[in-house]
């Protein structure tokens, strides 16, 4: 087991190395980078060419980039970046001038709260519903829930979000249209808290409605499998009540595959949801990433994508380990 985990971690490092190479090359291939944008913003289109070239070179040198992303330049730049990254210096964002890790951690809170609360809500609704549907397979509830969950899976986030804003915020006026707070001054404590919570209702609603479907279907499929197992027949043959069978024997065994999938949600939990946050104008990590990506902020793009990649790799690794932890029959190895 330990040997297997060590092997997997080494493999993950190799994968992360590959990801970083690919990302760096892609990012450096962007013809409009931050420097050019800044130069154009600062000078406009006038000014003589020599001056512009001089300024450009100076700016490139200042930000530690080669002027022309030649192959050699990218190669050197990559090793420089990798060395800094490994020594814990994630770079300074071009646009905001703040350390990248600070930006990520400052904006992660909101995203995490939204994802976490909606995840809990999803679990609370999806698991009982999935079990209930499986117990009455092909019943009315089962059919309705299956169709509704399919619709939920198929709805694009931005469309459902826009509809929710249009209906609940603009027409009915129940919730604020966007943002995280109403910009109230001089209020503290609970008023501020409730104001924020009020703003987060709609995004969480959207996330829950759209993500509940897949989890419900997963629970349903697993429960159906468990219901056909021999030990359930034994439990029934013993004369246990249907409630005991379902809530004790079936429920626990349904949880096994669910627990393992939970490890895979890691990137979504900490990485924020770019679309939802952009639709609702919430300054979480997703929206920040979207804005800075468009600005061509190389250190941030690299750090953010590596952050997501690390989370994904850890998620996959945890999923595999969880399989072995939850189900003693699974042997890790090879």
């Amino acid at each position: 087991m330990v040997k297997y985990i060590i092997k997997r971690i080494l493999l993950s490092l190799l994968i992360l190395f590959g990801v970083s190479v690919l990302l760096y090359v892609l990012v450096r291939m962007m013809p409009v980078d931050f420097v050019t944008q800044k130069l154009v913003a600062g000078l406009g289109s006038q000014g003589n060419d020599e001056l512009i070239a001089e300024r450009k070179a100076a700016l490139y040198a200042y930000y530690g980039l080669e002027e022309h992303p030649t192959l050699l330049g990218v190669w050197n730049g990559y090793w420089k970046w990798l060395f800094q990254f490994l020594s814990g210096d994630f770079g300074t964002s071009f646009k905001t001038g703040r350390p990248v890790e600070k930006i990520i951690f400052d904006n992660m809170g909101v995203s995490f709260v939204i994802s976490f609360i909606s995840l809990i809500l999803q679990l609370l609704i999806a698991i009982p519903l999935g079990i209930k549907c499986a117990c009455n397979q092909y019943g009315k509830l089962d059919y309705t829930a299956t169709v509704l969950s399919m619709i939920g899976i198929s709805f694009p986030t931005f469309f459902f979000g826009s509809l929710a804003i249009k209906i609940f915020a603009m027409e009915l006026g129940w919730f604020p249209v966007s943002g995280l707070d109403s910009g109230l001054f001089g209020v503290s404590g609970w008023t501020k808290f409730w104001d924020m919570a009020w703003h987060l209702v709609l995004p969480m609603f959207v996330l829950v409605v759209l993500n509940i479907g897949s989890m419900m279907r997963y629970t349903r499929t697993n429960t159906l499998e468990v219901l056909n197992a021999d030990y359930i027949r034994t439990a029934r043959a013993k004369g246990l009540s249907e409630n005991t069978v379902v809530y004790k024997h079936v429920f626990r065994n349904t949880m096994i595959p669910l627990v393992t999938t939970l490890a895979g949600i890691l990137p979504g939990l900490f990485g924020g949801s770019m679309i939802t946050e952009t639709v609702f104008g919430i300054p979480g990590i997703g929206k920040t990433a979207y804005d800075l990506l468009n600005a061509g902020d190389i250190p941030f793009i690299m750090a953010y994508n590596m952050f997501i990649a690390v989370l994904t790799v850890i998620g996959i690794l945890l999923t595999d380990i969880m399989y072995a932890v939850v189900d003693p029959r699974v042997k890790l190895g090879k």
Binding site: G18, V27, P31, V32, P267, N294, I308
Partner: peptide
Amino acid sequence: MRIVDILSCIPTLPIMLILSATLTSL
């Protein structure tokens, strides 16, 4: 399979954003 692993660890949306920005500037 290692290439597959690498590709599945890269978030798609940021890549598409980078591509779009590149195409616009070209």
